[in-house]
């Protein structure tokens, strides 16, 4: 019995040590820096809440925050359900279905650098695929400079993000579907449940572990979004597509304001924490004890 008592601690030992050194320590370091003024080169000076006050008066912070919220909403509304639909649709025992799953998965295999490059070509105002197609269809008036029109640039970028994100959630749901034993489905069919009933009453509850994860990562990914913005527009034109992670990067590493960048990081961290933990709290509250 004693053995069993100590087992979890033995299992957690290495993971906890690694995590403490490489992840938790840097987070505390960042929190500490957020109260300082630091150029990244000499010793930091403590300035209390100065950075946080600056933040509240910084219009770019609000632009970035608002854009992150756009990312969040669209990410939850599009790739998340779409990934589930794809997973359900392609989770069949038919020849060749693997090929379709692979096709949907493909965008996720591209690195963000490559992904951004491809979409930059597609969005190119003069020769890009979208505008060329529109012109060829006689819809020339609909052509837009997708990445330099400050009103739509953020949405153009979100489209790019949704593409691999859908593949991502599909994989999570596919993994979850393996927990749905075929007997359960057959039994439900025998009981005369129709398709919708089977989906809501049987499949969805069994998909719960996958869904918890898919929702959490969708929130995290949307709020932490960096690469697409950084490669495709660097937050431009004139900061209209800025998001918090990229703004933080620019402030810290291009403008030598590591203290302020750390403040942005802490605030972003807290926002994500808030969203994800409220969500997880609701879920775990109902978890049966074991």
């Amino acid at each position: 019995m004693n053995k069993r008592k100590f087992a979890p601690f033995k299992f957690l030992l290495i993971p906890v040590i690694l995590y403490a050194i490489w992840v938790i320590a840097p987070i505390f370091y960042t929190i500490f820096l957020s109260f300082t003024q630091w150029d990244g080169l000499t010793a930091p000076t403590f300035i209390g809440l100065g950075n946080y006050v600056d933040l509240l008066n910084d219009p770019t912070f609000y632009t970035a925050l608002f854009n992150n919220i756009k990312w969040l909403f669209i990410y939850v509304l599009v790739p998340l359900p779409l990934g589930l639909v794809f997973a359900l649709f392609f989770n069949r025992k038919l020849p060749g279905v693997k090929i379709f799953k692979t096709a949907i998965y493909l965008p996720l295999t591209l690195s963000f650098v490559v992904l951004s490059q491809i979409w930059t070509w597609i969005y190119q105002p003069k020769y890009g695929a979208i505008n060329v197609t529109l012109k060829a269809l006689g819809l020339g008036e609909l052509t837009v400079a997708w990445l330099s029109n400050s009103d739509i640039v953020t949405y153009s970028l979100i489209v790019v993000g949704c593409w691999p994100q859908t593949a991502y959630t599909m994989v999570l749901f596919l993994a979850g579907l393996q927990n749905v034993p075929t007997e359960v489905m057959e039994a439900a069919k025998v009981d005369g449940a129709n398709k919708w009933q089977r989906f809501w009453k049987v499949i969805l509850p069994l998909l719960k572990p996958a869904t918890i994860i898919a929702v959490a990562v969708t929130i995290i990914q949307s709020l932490r979004m960096f690469a697409i913005v950084n490669v495709m527009t660097r937050g431009g034109p004139f900061r209209s597509s800025e998001v918090l992670a990229n703004y933080m990067y620019v402030e810290g590493f291009k403008n030598y304001s590591m203290g302020y960048a750390s403040t942005l990081a802490v605030v972003l961290f807290l926002i994500i924490l808030l969203f994800v933990f409220i969500y997880l709290y609701q879920i775990f509250k109902t978890e049966v004890e074991y």
Partner: peptide, 17 residues
């Protein structure tokens, strides 16, 4: 200074638009 350059260059691009 880098911080000035970063902010000013945004304004230049904004001006052109």
């Amino acid at each position: 200074k880098p911080a000035m350059a970063d902010k000013a260059m945004d304004q230049f691009v904004k001006f052109m638009a």
